[in-house]
């Protein structure tokens, strides 16, 4: 259980950065941290004690394997995360070119 709590704490660190930081770079890093925590949480669910990795070789035939399903889901999630990071970076660069700052409180025309 302590592992789940630590993983959730990592997620909350990401939420903390997302809520309190005014710098666009720090906001992008916060989303990356939240992604790591979510991925790790899913893989923690699939672990079995005394089980091998889910790839069949001559050496581990017949032995119990860890759950391959969360690993397959997380594999796609990691790739999407990089795509999202690239998109956020592109938007941040565009905003920097327009306003010459990364401080979101200074981008006046974004205010409602």
């Amino acid at each position: 259980m302590i592992l789940y709590v630590l993983c959730f704490a990592l997620f909350l660190v990401g939420v903390y950065g997302l809520l309190t930081k005014r710098d666009l770079i720090k906001i992008i890093l916060s989303t990356a941290i939240m992604g790591y925590a979510a991925n790790l949480f899913l893989v923690l669910f699939g672990y079995r004690h005394d089980a091998t990795f889910p790839i069949l070789t001559e050496a581990n035939a017949g032995q119990p394997m860890v759950d391959p399903l969360p690993q397959a889901l997380v594999l796609t999630s990691i790739v999407i995360e990089l795509g999202i990071t690239a998109l956020l970076v592109a938007l941040a660069i565009r905003l920097y070119q327009k306003y010459a700052t990364f401080d979101i409180t200074k981008m006046r025309s974004l205010k409602g």
């Binding site: 991925n39 790790l40 893989v43 923690l44 699939g46 672990y47 089980a51 091998t52 990795f53 889910p54 790839i55 860890v66 690993q71 997380v74 594999l75 990691i78 790739v79 995360e81 990089l82």
Partner: peptide, 17 residues
């Protein structure tokens, strides 16, 4: 951590990405 959790696939992908 992925390596410890018996997920070599994920470890490679996470490292490269």
């Amino acid at each position: 951590a992925f390596l410890f959790l018996q997920a070599p696939d994920l470890a490679i992908v996470q490292f490269l990405f």
